[in-house]
Amino acid sequence: MSAAAVDLGRGLRLANPVLLASGPFGYGGRYLELFDPARLGAVVLKGTSPVPWPGNPPPRVAAVDGGLLNAVGLENPGVEAVLAGPARSLAERGCTVVLNVVGHDEDDFVAVARRADLSPHVAALEVNVSCPNVPDGLRYGTDPRAVAGLVAAVRRVTRLPLWVKLPPAPPDRRALARAVADAGADALSLVNTLPALALDRTGRPRLGAGAGGLSGAALRPVALLAVRECADAVDLPIIGMGGVETAEHARAFFAAGARAVAVGTALFRNPLAAVEILAALEADPDPQPPPRR
């Protein structure tokens, strides 16, 4: 697997297989002064709802052994503001922009998708049925029938490529992946964060929302299994993510069956993580596998 262009279905071709995951990069902020996101395959924007969502009370982040817990709670200014602001400005900088879609119910998802379909700045939609940090966040992401209904409804209102982002450890992953594929999705994003809890010394939650979602290195082996099992179950391209920090991690996801990888939490320690991974893949596209014993 090299750093060359990748085909993610429905005619969407990305210049390379290294993406920015939804959330940590947000809309760029001052990362835009530290690296150029247009060099990457695509930028997936934060979860976007039909109207502004306030997000969760502080604290929203807590480092834990091997990773990070977050409960941002999908704070965002709503689809109109996202399309007019960051989606547009990032697309004008040359980024391939993917919109991560969230909602409380089917009407919400459909409303965002319908609106985004009209935008010249959005290249694909990532339907987020796997956020552990809002009350209804996992309502669709665990039930094959429910997710199939949702994906079919979104499919009807947009011609954009449709990615579906699944949770890291649903009850029946293969059934879920097949339901999503049959309902008309073009690709799978694997995985979102894993529900988790961090307590302080007095036994109180360290996050304002109580529990949160685990990301970073500790999530990597969980994500690799998800990618491997979904790649076996369905014929859709897979965008793998969860603790991708180096080119070697990216290669592990490719080996498990991912066609692209997305970088999230690693940006916090190293804002250059994604562009450094891409550069390393370009420098050594097909390293010799270690000799078999």
Partner: peptide
């Protein structure tokens, strides 16, 4: 408490 420090992640409300 912060994560990105650059106004990107909304982790520091």
């Amino acid at each position: 408490a912060m994560a990105c420090g650059v106004g990107a992640c909304y982790g520091c409300p």
